[in-house]
């Protein structure tokens, strides 16, 4: 009787290797997300400035990130820019760089949207009370903006996690690549290996992204009731 396909996952150190690959994926995603949150909030506040030059440059940045596919950005940086500037950047570094640029742009837009959706009078009320602009941001605008942007921000985070699978194409050995290696070895013995390996990877991504989604819903409900 042929091996039941699912055994592939538990053979040897396959599962361990998949988990290590997953860790590489998560490492890139977590660092990129952390950078995006911090710099994205700053960028978002900058985007609310009235200066026309700032608006123009910010829009240019945001639209280029959106129009050009992330994969192309990865190639541009990994194969293109490193050659032009003669610096050697590892594939993982390039991945974090590109994903951070993406995250900062999107996060900035989310923050800008949350801030501008607040009624203008809130700021006037705060000023009429004698609060400084910094105090108004800290006590009135930011707390409310944070509540509004959490769903979109968490959605961005899960999208970033999923898109990290692209980095396999610039040579990073992450979970998808490990999966392919396992399949190549086992495919002759176990024809259904590809199904089970990819099913396992599917489950791993699900286990990571679904709790984050649930947490986001919980936060939304909690703040709606306030």
């Amino acid at each position: 009787m042929q091996d039941l396909g699912i055994n592939v996952i538990f053979e040897g150190s396959n599962l361990l290797r998949l988990l290590i690959g997953l860790w590489v994926t998560m490492r890139i995603a977590i660092v990129a997300i952390a950078i995006s949150v911090v710099l994205g909030i700053a960028f978002g506040i900058v985007m609310t400035a009235k200066n026309r030059w700032i608006q123009w440059i910010a829009r240019l940045y945001l639209e280029s990130i959106r129009i050009i596919p992330i994969l192309v950005w990865l190639f541009i940086f990994y194969f293109g820019i490193t050659k032009v500037l003669h610096i050697h950047l590892g594939a993982e570094v390039v991945s974090v760089l590109v994903f951070s640029l993406w995250g900062i742009a999107e996060m900035g837009d989310i923050v800008r949207g949350a801030i501008t959706s607040l009624p203008v009078h809130q700021r006037a009320s705060g000023r009429a009370l004698g609060l400084t602009d910094l105090q108004i941001y800290r006590y009135i605008i930011i707390p409310q903006a944070v509540r509004r942007l959490i769903p979109a921000a968490i959605n961005l985070a899960t999208r970033m996690i999923k898109t990290t699978s692209l980095v396999v194409l610039i040579g990073v050995v992450e979970v998808l690549k490990v999966g392919q290696q396992i399949i190549e070895v086992s495919i002759l013995k176990t024809p259904s290996a590809s199904f089970w390996v990819y099913a396992c990877i599917f489950a791993l991504y699900f286990i990571i992204c679904y709790p984050i989604s649930l947490w986001s819903k919980k936060l939304e409900l909690k703040w709606q009731n306030q």
């Binding site: 009624p119 009078h121 809130q122 006037a124 009320s125 705060g126 000023r127 009429a128 009370l129 004698g130 006590y139 009135i140 409310q144």
Partner: peptide, 14 residues
């Protein structure tokens, strides 16, 4: 503005 209190038409409590 701390010495001048103002109340608006659109209340604007936080």
């Amino acid at each position: 503005r701390q010495k001048i209190g103002m109340v608006f038409q659109s209340y604007d409590l936080f």
